[in-house]
Computed example of a mutant assay.
Amino acid sequence: MTRGVAISRTFWMWTRLLGGAAILVALVWRQGTGPFLDGLRLTTPAALLAALVVTAATTLCCAWRWSLIAGRLDVGVPVRTAFAAYYRSQLLNATLPAGVLGDVHRGVRHGRETGALGRGLRSVVWDRAAGQAVQAVLALGAVAFLAPALRTPVVLVAVVGLVVLVVAWVVLPRRPRLVLADDVRRLAPLWPRLVLGSAVAAAGHAVVFVVAARTAGVTVPLSQVAPLALVVLLVSAVPVSIAGWGMREGAAAWVFGAVGLGAAQGVTVSVVYGVMALVATLPGAVLPVPRGDGAPAPRLEDAAHG
């Protein structure tokens, strides 16, 4: 790793951490500690059990999606191995500062075990990208059910995100662009299954958020809570947080405040969801991740594609 790359990574890591911390400090300054303490107090064993059950199902969907992608990139991983590895990555994401280190660990570990570090990492990148793309589409579909105060900002964020992706593709050097284009060609036959797995996983995360909202005392109809859940979860995927905390609470405060439910209520719901999500990843601490059952190391003539 060159000195410039190391400095860049360190800069972005601290930017994400400080950004998440700044959001939390701003929320405490504006709302006080009450909403945070209420979230911890209101979380119930029943809610935690629900999160464990639903997260097991969403993790299986995500593991299946990753297994499909890895197989097409010639770094196959069995679903049972992917399931355990996915649980571990979620636990690391929920406990380590940057909120994405679990996925980095998953990609590096799988890449080294299969002898193709580049493709192992890209399998995880495509896995997360597929999930986020479907979640973004679902969130945009929920715009019709949102209050007018939220529709324009959500659409604006979507447009900005699309522009950023286009610009990133244009400025990307030719060789990485060719590699990604080849990946897209390989993965194209999978898109119906990737969409299905991602949609079920996104729905599962939304269900956990709805349970958190009900646990926190939100009584508005499901038709109003579910769209809010999709928007909050999409915004919280932005890696500006401390182990997942920060952006999610800020998004919940904004969304709940905009629809008249109160920013403080949004923070409380987000805290309940955060505790539920953390407990739901604990199986990652005990599930063993099998070694040595991935795809064999690539042939020498394939190395250039890895």
Rank of each mutant, 00 (worst) to 15 (best):
A82Y: 05
I7T: 09
L180I: 14
Q224C: 02
P283R: 12
S89L: 06
L48H: 09
P290F: 11
V200C: 03
V164S: 11
L146D: 05
L73P: 00
W254F: 15
P288W: 02
L196W: 09
H105I: 04
L187K: 01
A264Q: 02
T114C: 10
L165V: 15
A63S: 08
S67Q: 00
A116S: 12
P35E: 14
R299A: 14
L40Y: 05
S236H: 03
L278Y: 06
H105M: 06
R112D: 09
A133Q: 01
L24N: 06
V79L: 02
R9I: 13
V125H: 06
A57Q: 00
W191L: 07
P298G: 05
S270L: 02
D293I: 15
V235A: 13
G292W: 13
P283G: 08
A263E: 15
V240G: 08
G99A: 10
P153W: 00
L24E: 09
D127Y: 11
R177V: 08
V210Y: 14
L60S: 12
V238I: 15
L190Y: 06
A116G: 13
A201R: 03
H110A: 13
G111D: 03
A280H: 00
L172Y: 08
S198G: 02
F11D: 07
A226G: 00
Y87R: 02
V134C: 05
P78N: 05
D182H: 12
G250C: 07
V170E: 09
G266H: 05
R88L: 12
V211Y: 05
V143P: 13
T55D: 11
L150S: 10
P176S: 04
V255W: 01
A213Y: 07
A216T: 07
P153C: 10
A6P: 00
V170G: 02
L18T: 14
V79Q: 01
S270M: 02
G4C: 00
T95S: 15
P45G: 08
G19I: 07
L187M: 05
P227D: 01
A303N: 03
I242F: 15
V125Y: 07
V200D: 05
A139I: 10
G161P: 07
V77K: 08
A229E: 09
P221I: 04
A21R: 04
R177K: 15
A253E: 05
L233K: 12
A202S: 15
L300R: 07
P239A: 03
S67I: 03
A212H: 12
V238F: 09
A84Y: 04
L150F: 13
V267E: 08
G250T: 08
A51F: 04
T219Q: 14
R122K: 06
P221T: 10
V154I: 06
C62M: 12
G120C: 14
W191V: 12
V163L: 11
V164I: 15
A258M: 06
T59P: 02
R128Q: 13
R175K: 08
A188Q: 11
V108T: 12
A253I: 01
V240M: 12
V108R: 12
R16Y: 02
V195R: 01
